[in-house]
Structure formats: C-alpha cells, structure tokens
Simulated scan of single mutants.
Amino acid sequence: MSEPLSQPATANLLTDNPELYEARFPDPERLAGRWAEDCLRRYGAGPRVLDLGCGTGRDAAHLHRAGRTVTGADLSDAMLAYARAQHPGPEYVRADLRQFALPGREFDAVVCLDSALLYCHTNAELDGCLASVRRSLAPGGLLVAEMRNGAFFLGRTELLDAPRVNGFTWRGVAYESTTTLYVDRTAQLLRRTRVWTADDGSEPAEQRSAWRLLFPLELRHMVASHGFEVLALYDGPGPRTEPEWREGDAPGAVTDADRLHLVARRLN
C-alpha cells in the first residue's frame, strides 16, 4: 500500500519514493540511457563512466549493460537504496554534485542527465561541480550533460502561462500533480511549485524546487573556464525533446528549443 501524501518521508515526494518517481516518469525504452551511450560511442569515450545525479539507477544500469564500468552517484539515500536493489550492476555511492571527491576513482566520462546540473543554483555551486567533474576525469575524458535551455525562456511563455496537470496510478492509488513554473530573473532560476493530490483520502502536498537557467554561451564559457573543450552543444534531438531522439540521429546545430545537450572534453 502506498504512503499517504500527508506523510512523506521528507520534503520531496518523488525523490523519497523512487518507485513513484519511475511510475511518474516511465522510460521503458531506456531512451535517456541509450542517448547517453550513443554520445559516448560517437565521441570515443573509454569504458569507465560516472553517472552524476543517477537517481533510480535506470540509466546507470543501461550503461552497465552496454559493457561499461559504471559508478552511479546521488545525494538521495532513498534513490541509492532503490538503485542497488532494482538496477544492480553499477557501484552506487553518495555524493553531492555541487562539490564531490571520489578518491581512488578515475573516469573516462561523466554523464549528467535530466537537468541534474541545474540543481547547482549559484555560480559558486556550478564552479564546484565542474571542478569536481574535471578532477574525476582522466585527461581527454568526456562530460555529457542534458538539461533545460535558459535561452528558451527569452520571449517565450508557453511553459509558464498555465499549470500542467498529470495523472497516473501507482499501487492502486490515482495520483494527480499540478505543476506551475515561473522565472525568477534575479536569481536566474526556473522555480517550480507542484501540488500533489491522491484518491486515498490524504491531504494535498505542495512541494517546491528550482533549476538554474543557463544560456548556451554562458554554459560554453563556464565549461571552458574549467579546462574543457566543447565538442557539441545543441537543442535536439535528445531523450526529452519533441520529436525524441532515435538511433542514428545526429546532433543538431542550434540551441533554440527547451533542452540543451552538451558534450565537452577535458583538455590535458
């Protein structure tokens, strides 16, 4: 039986309930993991991969099945426990992507999907993350990241004009989420308020989060300042674009739509 909304384990219903997260954001075709693997192959990455902000471990496990030696890192103990049980193969470790060290480990690639990089809200946090990523990579190693595109919100309001309502059923309970986004221009954040309701008699639960809005040239500059060469930066196709990425699709050439996809190489 599911836990009532009025009694979440901590402040985030989805990250504290990984099964619920996968029910809300299903990826049966492992599209995100396949896209990441395609990038790693396209740009010649070696076998040792760090999945930074690995969440439930779905993508880390896909990369493991593709023949790579994978470490998944996340700050959520609930997500890590679920990943170890449900998506075995990678090694899973606790780490804060804003600044981390994994002694004794060196990687050929760091993968950071689903806007995880944008949980670095300040320039100091972004610097800490990128410096940590660089230290973790072997010379010539790749950073592959997928995230929202701050430039999309210049003059566009379609994601801001009205709440988005999504419904799904998990363990016999019908859930509905109503999500409202707004741009905090001073902090350069996309702030999200999500209200959860369920038909199990529990009270509605309101949760708040935010992503840093990065612009393409800003991202290029920050990555370069930490000793990376940008190999590709484009809006689509990708695992969360319309249309979705499919096997054989080449990277795009513009950065106009809602998502950004980054591939950068650590310089020696």
Rank of each mutant, 00 (worst) to 15 (best):
M1G: 15
M1S: 14
S6G: 13
T10C: 02
L13D: 00
L13E: 10
T15G: 10
T15K: 06
P26M: 09
D27I: 02
D27Y: 09
P28Q: 04
P28T: 02
G33H: 03
W35C: 08
D38G: 09
C39D: 00
A45G: 06
P47C: 04
V49L: 06
L50K: 04
L52Y: 10
G55Q: 06
T56W: 05
T56V: 05
T56G: 07
A61N: 09
H62S: 07
H62N: 00
H62M: 04
R65E: 15
A66M: 12
G72Y: 05
A78N: 07
M79C: 05
A83H: 03
A83T: 04
R84V: 11
R84M: 09
H87W: 12
G89H: 13
P90D: 06
E91N: 11
A95E: 09
R98W: 12
R98S: 11
L102Y: 04
P103D: 07
P103E: 07
R105G: 01
A109L: 08
V111G: 01
T122K: 06
D127V: 02
G128E: 09
S132N: 06
V133I: 13
A138H: 03
L142V: 01
L143M: 01
V144S: 06
E146I: 02
G150M: 11
G155C: 07
E158M: 03
L160H: 07
D161R: 14
R164D: 14
G167Q: 13
W170N: 08
R171G: 05
R171Q: 15
G172C: 08
V173T: 14
A174P: 07
A174T: 14
Y182S: 13
Y182D: 13
R185F: 13
T193D: 15
T193Q: 14
T197N: 08
A210I: 02
L213T: 12
L214V: 12
F215V: 11
P216C: 10
E218Q: 15
V223K: 02
A224Y: 01
E229F: 00
L233I: 11
Y234I: 08
P239M: 01
T241M: 04
E242N: 07
E242Y: 09
W245C: 06
A250Q: 15
A250R: 14
P251C: 04
P251K: 04
A253R: 15
R259L: 08
H261T: 02
A264M: 02
A264G: 03
A264W: 05
